[in-house]
């Protein structure tokens, strides 16, 4: 890969950098802001974010969403997925974004079922 082959835009072209080095620092600043925001939310835990949304707290959904955002920028800009051919990009990303949510879905559904069984069963677990 030639040194000048980097795509230097992030946020869909909203932010353009002059050089690759500048882009790296820009992404670092963005990742730091997101992490700081997450930690602040985790310490404050605002009341209005503690309500349930799709059987999980809204706050936890925000954390997971922000984590995926961070993962995207680490993979796209630090690991240079952004500069790869779409064939390689898809070969890497598609298996992960199909298999991982699927695995999470079936296991967590099963866990919730077991939780219900343990709660509603006649066996006491708290002794």
């Amino acid at each position: 890969m030639a040194a000048d082959a980097h795509k230097l835009e992030i946020f869909r072209g909203l932010l353009k950098f002059k050089s690759n080095v500048q882009k790296i620092w820009g992404v670092l600043i963005f990742l730091s802001i997101v992490t700081t925001f997450e930690v602040a939310l985790g310490i404050i835990r605002p009341e209005f974010l503690l309500q349930d949304f799709l059987s999980m707290k809204l706050l936890n959904w925000i954390f997971i969403l922000l984590t995926i955002v961070k993962a995207y920028y680490i993979a796209w800009d630090f690991m240079h997925i952004r500069d790869e051919r779409s064939g390689l990009k898809n070969a890497i990303v598609l298996p992960l974004i199909i298999l991982i949510p699927y695995l999470a879905f079936i296991l967590i559904l099963e866990a919730d079922y077991i939780f219900e069984v343990m709660r509603n069963g006649i066996v006491s677990w708290n002794f």
Binding site: I92, L96, E110, A111, M118
Partner: peptide, 27 residues
């Protein structure tokens, strides 16, 4: 990259099984 993809699946299996246990004892 292939190694990273398979390792990512390993880690996600660990984290998902953590999620499994956590949802099992969610209370």
């Amino acid at each position: 990259w292939f190694f990273i993809v398979s390792d990512a699946l390993t880690f996600s299996a660990f984290l998902v099984s953590y999620g499994f246990s956590r949802f099992k004892f969610i209370d």
